[in-house]
Amino acid sequence: MSTEKKEREPLFSAKNRKLLTNPLGVDNPITVQVLGICSALAVTAKLKPAFVMSVSVIVVTMLANMLISAMRNGIPQRIRIIVQLVVIASLVILVDQVLKAFVFDVSKQLSVFVGLIITNCIIMGRLEAFAMSNKPWPSLLDGLGNGLGYAWVLIAVGFVRELFGSGTLWGYTVIPETFYDFGYKNNGFMILPPMALIIVGIIIWIQRSRNPELVEEN
């Protein structure tokens, strides 16, 4: 992209900053690009697993993007999917082993969804769309940005579901006892899987009504 440029591009040029901030809003992987929904919803019944999952995905997208981008000129076009899968799968194995070693209880809660980061479409999607045609540093930023975009949706959904579903946040009770004395009840429905979909639907609704450019044709 900068073949004729004499000066080295600064690490955080305007273009690179955009790579980081776009996926948070107008180009969000979940609500706009529709990538990575698969594992996004199942882990959000509580805040803590949602947070751990987000961190894992950020790490994997960042590193996978950087590695593939560094190797992009050596990867034959025809077998690139397999090469990408091998890189991602090795990174995910690392993450899985780290989680098992340091946060075993969360790793048990996440169960198969750590493994499913491999087939998380965000990672494959970003590798195909960005890392295969860009330099390592912008790719790393792009991975970080998309990971963060994924993370905030996950954490927002986890926050709402845990707060209203069990009256706790990160496992600590936050809704005071007096509320319950006045007849407040936890909405057990929030814990159940379908609510995750509906909450993401509502997030999309809010985002698109504030930014009409994103509205789709019916």
Partner: peptide, 9 residues
């Protein structure tokens, strides 16, 4: 704003 993706969710 709900058209397409939102309503499908």
């Amino acid at each position: 704003p709900l058209r397409g993706l939102g309503i499908t969710f």
